[in-house]
Design a protein around this nucleic acid. Sequence first.
DNA 1: GTGGTTGCAAATGATTTGCAGTCCC
DNA 2: GGGACTGCAAATCATTTGCAACCAC
Lengths: 169, 169
Amino acid sequence: MAERSLPRTAAPAPHLRAEKGERQTPEAILRQALKRRRLKYTAERQAVLREVLDTHAHFDARQLGRLLRKRGARVSQATVYRTLTVLREAGLLREVFRDAQGSHFEHVYGHEHHEHLICLRCGKVLEFQSARLEEIQDEACRARGFRPLRHQLQVFGYCEECDARTIDD
Amino acid sequence: MAERSLPRTAAPAPHLRAEKGERQTPEAILRQALKRRRLKYTAERQAVLREVLDTHAHFDARQLGRLLRKRGARVSQATVYRTLTVLREAGLLREVFRDAQGSHFEHVYGHEHHEHLICLRCGKVLEFQSARLEEIQDEACRARGFRPLRHQLQVFGYCEECDARTIDD
DNA sequence: GTGGTTGCAAATGATTTGCAGTCCC
DNA sequence: GGGACTGCAAATCATTTGCAACCAC
């Protein structure tokens, strides 16, 4: 299965309307998203959300789970996976990219949208944003009658340190 | 598995032979890439290459395998996977994106680099290219000392037909 | 109460890999 | 002839799911 949409009642894609959302705490946002779907605000979900917000770097589901448990939270890996899905649907989490080892995430709260420069050697991820970039995309979409919802640009290469260390063949 | 650099991006890939490469047939390119690594030009690899080139759409490893076998080629799925890796390393194939169902590819031969507009409803993939887009990226990379090798921009949304059919919330 | 939750273990599904028999160079 | 290849089946691995005990509302 894939792409699930929130059974909304009147809520446009969370990340598309930032004004109202940015005023609430992420906890309130989650609570609201859950209530809208008649789901429950459990201790496990709170723990995962807190960890996600505290992690100011990209992470995958396993790492997050390990981190949580290391801090004493009693959350199974299955619940981590299930909660990540909920957070994504609540617009609090974004999947940055997938590779052989699975999905990589970052939290969204308080962050502007941005693109990624991914180092193939050390895995470091740099970020940048550009309004012009968005314009170009919108233009391309418009020309094709395509309605964009979200996008991601990934540039793979070598970061400064790794580049210096890499001998080209 | 090792991330390999593909011949694609602003400057022609420096290490992978660039100059005379563009004039050769894809078969010759593969043959050469294999020889360089002391690998063999087998009937199975030829069959996979032919199928990859004949497929003018995005595909995944399973589909390609099924297609090959349907045409009578005696190629196991394991070999399809192994060969796709070889073709990618030879610069004849590109991984477009990954989702829950795995990797999606497209052949590179004779195609300009381009970005993708992916319909979340019907799965259709539209393409576009933009020199300005590349400039912006290069600029961002330069500013961070990042050496870009390849990139991909994916815009997710709804294509014209699906958009018309979609009742918005 | 009771419908949504959770942990656990088993199930998935794409992709990889160990082997033994084959086949290019 | 020997190292590379191939098919097959077993192995991986991240992620999902069935189920019975639990818990938020």
